[in-house]
Amino acid sequence: MSVLPYPLLALSLLLMWLILNSFSVGHLLLGSAIAVFASWSMAALRPSKPRIRRWDLLARLLVIVLYDIIQSNIAVVRLILTGRRPGHHSAFLAVPLELKDPTGLALLAVIITSTPGTAWIEYNSSEGTLLMHILDVMDETEWIDIVKNRYERLLREIFE
């Protein structure tokens, strides 16, 4: 067993410790010890280890998602305050996914849920179908296109 099985987890735990307490040498040592022990106990659970292949694309995805969250915030606020435009309705939508990596799927769930207006309802892992609910939809194919081309393609390049 290596000393640091999950270097990213250990680093973020240490960072969290230093943010919660003020920075000092004592807290640096204590935080490092806690990070190392926590990553050992994580190793005992044996979760699947995520492999991030493209850090540059991860940064691009983050920018895209932040922009989309702002956009959909405005859209949902307009819908709540002014009511539904004619021709629009809310609907369930089944999206076939080719993404299989668990970390990528988890990230996709976070993206879809934290964007107002779209909600992740159910995922069938054997067929790779995702059921989502869209608050304001006019053309269903447009949303399938957004999920598949805007998020899934990038996620597949990052994780697979």
């Binding site: 949902v76 809310s90 934290s114 107002p116 779209t118 909600a119 609910h133 608050l135």
Partner: peptide
């Protein structure tokens, strides 16, 4: 409906 209401708290949780 409930599934539409599910979207409302995400305004508070995001921005």
């Amino acid at each position: 409906s409930f599934y539409q209401r599910l979207h409302a708290p995400t305004l508070g949780t995001s921005w």
